[in-house]
Amino acid sequence: MGHLRFTGLPEPDGATAAGSVIGRLDPRLRIVATLCFAVTVVGLSSLVALCLACAVSLAFLFLSRQPPWRTLRRVAMMDGFILFMLVLLPFTVPGEPAFELWGLTASREGVFRAVEIALTANAVILALMTLVGSMAPATLGHALHALRCPTTLIHLLMFTIRYIHVLQGEYLRLREAMKVRGFRPASNWHSYRSLGYLVGMMLVRAIDRAERILEAMKCRGFSGRLLLPHPFHLTAADAAFAVGLLAVCGGLLGFDSVWH
């Protein structure tokens, strides 16, 4: 308890899925495709269509060659967080009674609603993690810049990506220093004061570091223009993926309207 549960943001420019089918697609296309897919899935209401959407996301996972168990474990962690909300729904949505538990009646509509939310959330987050999460964080920044996101926001994103690793190292060093002095976190005033000072120290050091970074950037004549090391190109494979994805989205929506 109290340690950093942090399996790590991928290295800023460490490509994670370079050789896979999805890794070869244009990052801009992967972002736009994920948005289209997410909006489509959120709009679905039949459970069969939602199950198909989950299957499509699993196919993305397979095509992206992301480590499947690690990715699915993270999705399962999210499910853990929303579980309490989902188990309440059958008892709070009015409708036809489905079953009784400890004197409370669960409605069919409520059960459907809970399953619907769980399927939607899983399909979208899995598509996001496999289509976008499989690119290097710095590539995400470049692709968002190419998609006309505000330059200042991209600057901020790139700085954050770059310095999460540095500050994580700093945090672990400070934590180590506390540990060798016998600090063991518990629920007491001493622990809270020490951890508060730790946070404060991290912020002070972060700001000192930012001042040095700014000096270094000025010294090299930084003018606020972002340089893109990898200009993106759309290829035939991108076009095929785009057509395929549109067909899938259209199919899901069509299926949804027919089934309902």
Binding site: L156, M158, F159, T160, Y163, V166, L167, A206, A210
Partner: peptide, 8 residues
Amino acid sequence: PTAGVLSA
């Protein structure tokens, strides 16, 4: 830079 490093 300050905002970016603080965000991290």
